[in-house]
Design a protein around this nucleic acid. Structure first.
Lengths: 141, 141
DNA sequence: TATTGTTATACTCTATAACTATA
DNA sequence: TATAGTTATAGAGTATAACAATA
């Protein structure tokens, strides 16, 4: 008999929706949205490139969803697909110089967008929230 | 090592996605999903009915999205639309007896679904999470 | 046989614009 | 003029199934 405003699942999806929307609005200035941005971040942070399978796992997406995201970034010259030297099935997605350059600006914009909602919490509270959510999200393996 | 794993916005949308999916899977047994379920809850908790405009505000949706949700529940005889005595533009959405009956089972199922992810936190931690999210979500007015 | 990337498809969600009937 | 509900539409997100190349 708990009212909706106390429902953790509802609060979670509401908070997520607001933060994603605010972040998308900030990223619009450089023609990015949250999903492609997160792909760019992962590509930048893996020097030798990251396979689409690993990309999908890191983002919690199905590999089939990753294709269009990489296509979009590759079409803009922000990442490129390179065949893996170890396994010819695998394509390694790596950031280009332009991609790395844009990533810095993107990170600033994304941060500013998120703060429109999350700035209501102190730094300590944000850290608490981060720890709690990390445990909710963690793979129980 | 993943930098995204420290991003609060990413964690939020990931956690929300997992909880919503688990809840939808649980609710599938009675042919409901999270959104229609939340409408049913609000209809049940407002004895005299709630206007679609207030429903939209409470759920953070556009009024146009509420129409199909109410249609679906009304089509199953779980809620009904009644004209407001005060304003003939307004329709009050109220739960039927069948709606109230199903709501109890639905709440059990939704709770069980959410616990598949949120049960990793103690009750105290869940309360902390609830308070933090409530502040992120709150209207700053 | 199993896995990586891919295509295809369908359904849900989100976001707007515009219309109607009331106020 | 403004508001409540509605219709319509388009784009983004989610979920599966199946296929080709490779392991």
């Amino acid at each position: 008999m708990s009212p909706l405003a106390d429902d953790l699942g509802f609060l979670l999806s509401r908070a997520s929706g607001l933060v994603v929307r605010a972040t998308n609005e900030s990223l619009a200035e450089i023609g990015l949205r949250v999903r492609p941005y997160s792909v760019l971040v992962l590509a930048c942070d893996h020097e030798g490139g990251i396979s689409q399978r690993d990309l999908a796992a890191a983002l919690g997406l199905d590999p089939s969803q990753v294709v269009a995201l990489v296509d979009e970034l590759a079409g803009r010259g922000l990442v490129r697909r390179a065949p893996s030297p170890d396994d010819r099935r695998t394509k390694l997605v790596a950031a280009t110089a332009r991609g790395r350059e844009l990533r810095e600006r993107a990170a600033q914009l994304a941060g500013a967008g998120g703060r429109r909602q999350l700035g209501r919490l102190t730094a300590a509270e944000q850290a608490t929230l981060r720890d709690l959510l990390a445990r909710v999200v963690a793979d129980p393996a």
